[in-house]
């Protein structure tokens, strides 16, 4: 069992970060060992990461489908389970059922989007994490997790070479 360490460095801009990451990749650090923390979103792959397959649209579709079924159940099934006649209308009319089904589809889509994205980005999570408050001041933090101890030097050098500052073995902090 090789001893592993964590390493963190701060960068001033996106170009420096991506350049540093390129070097770190060269060291054989895997994608899932690298976390980049920034205060604004960057275009995908801008920082050298691979494409991430996002499950969110499917969660939303699934939620919408459940909503559709729920809405349909309420508007078309329950009136037949508990039949009460109004206005000479059929027990469950098409148009009202369409409205209810539609709204519930949307409601569930909205809720599943929200829950889905929280699920995907692992919040809420209040445990201690690697973080640096300078991120909100516009800096980018690169965190390397599970880095073999022997690569620390090389990694530090790679970061420093591209303007990395405050390179250290970080503590997990309370956010």
């Amino acid at each position: 069992m090789t001893k592993t360490i964590n390493l963190m460095g701060l960068f001033d801009d996106d170009k420096a970060t991506s350049a540093a990451l390129d070097d770190i990749y060269e060291l054989g650090v895997r994608d899932d060992q690298i976390t980049v923390i920034s205060s604004i979103p960057y275009p995908e792959q801008a920082l050298g990461r691979h494409h991430v397959w996002v499950r969110l649209p499917f969660i939303v579709l699934a939620g919408a489908f459940v909503g559709f079924l729920f809405g349909y159940f309420l508007s078309a099934i329950t009136p037949r389970l508990y039949p009460i006649n109004v206005s000479g209308h059929p027990l469950s009319g098409g148009p009202p059922a369409a409205i209810i089904t539609y709204i519930f589809t949307m409601l569930f889509a909205v809720i599943s989007t929200f829950i889905g994205v929280l699920w995907e980005i692992d919040v809420p999570g209040f445990e201690k994490k690697f973080y640096d408050r300078k991120v909100t001041s516009g800096q980018l933090a690169v965190v390397l997790e599970g880095l073999p101890a022997d690569k620390e030097k090389a990694a530090t050098a790679a970061m420093t070479a591209h303007g990395g500052q405050d390179i250290r073995r970080p503590e997990k902090i309370t956010l």
Binding site: I84, N85, V86, S87, G88
Partner: peptide, 20 residues
Amino acid sequence: QCTEAPCEAVCPVYATYHSD
């Protein structure tokens, strides 16, 4: 006592309805 009573369909809780 309308057969197609406008009041019945709009009640959200079936407080007014059509008896058989």
